[in-house]
């Protein structure tokens, strides 16, 4: 998992909770990296799971909610670092449709070792976008948070329904524009 996800996560914990909480979850997680992350590095995704589990224990908030909230936060961080993606797209559907075949392609140019999830799209119905998430890791919640963060950024009125799929690492998101 890219270091940028870790640094953003800890930043969020520091801002939304406290420096203390951030320190506690790091210390409690017994991480191989020792909890020191750089955005250009790559780290085992289990460290993220451990940090999230520790945070849930300490705050009493369910893991899924925490991860989804982090996804929304991560989106604001991403567009701050790569504003060109936002400038090129006028709507949430437009940028979401580009995640798989454009944004991830660009990510791989910078980080050839990045292991990225895939998205399949269905656009058969007007006003509806279906995204099917597949990953080697169970981070569908993070994907949901990112989608929500994107919709919020564009200020659009879009309903997101998540349908679980057979595999634990896959999910189907049905995005519908509300009239």
């Amino acid at each position: 998992m890219k270091g940028m996800v870790f640094t953003s996560f800890l930043e969020m914990v520091e801002n939304k909770f406290s420096l203390d909480v951030a320190d506690q979850i790091i210390e409690a997680s017994n991480l191989p990296s020792g909890g020191s992350y750089t955005s250009v590095g790559t780290y085992p995704h289990n460290e993220m799971i451990q940090l999230v589990v520790q945070l849930a224990e300490r705050t009493g908030i369910p893991v899924a909610d925490l991860v989804r909230t982090f996804g929304e936060y991560l989106f604001t961080q991403l567009i701050a670092m790569y504003p060109q993606f936002i400038q090129e797209h006028q709507t949430a559907f437009s940028i979401l449709r580009k995640v798989d075949n454009y944004i991830h392609v660009e990510v791989l140019k910078l980080y050839p070792d990045a292991e990225l999830p895939t998205f399949e799209y269905e656009t058969s119905e007007p006003g509806t976008l279906i995204m099917i998430y597949r990953s080697s890791r169970p981070f569908a919640d993070l994907a949901e948070g990112l989608i929500l963060g994107c919709i919020e950024h564009y200020g659009e009125n879009i309903e997101v329904k998540r349908e679980p799929m057979d595999e634990g690492t896959a999910a189907r998101f049905v995005l519908t524009e509300r009239k």
Binding site: L19, D20, A22, D23, I26, E27, G34, G35, S36, Y37, T38, S39, V40, G41
Partner: peptide, 25 residues
């Protein structure tokens, strides 16, 4: 307690910076 937390954080930041420098190199 707070100083200890900050010290640890600085340690982590330092380590992260070194790692970043190595990666850059």
């Amino acid at each position: 307690q707070e100083i200890e937390v900050l010290r640890r954080q600085i340690e982590r930041e330092k380590k992260a910076r070194k790692e970043a420098e190595q990666i850059a190199e």
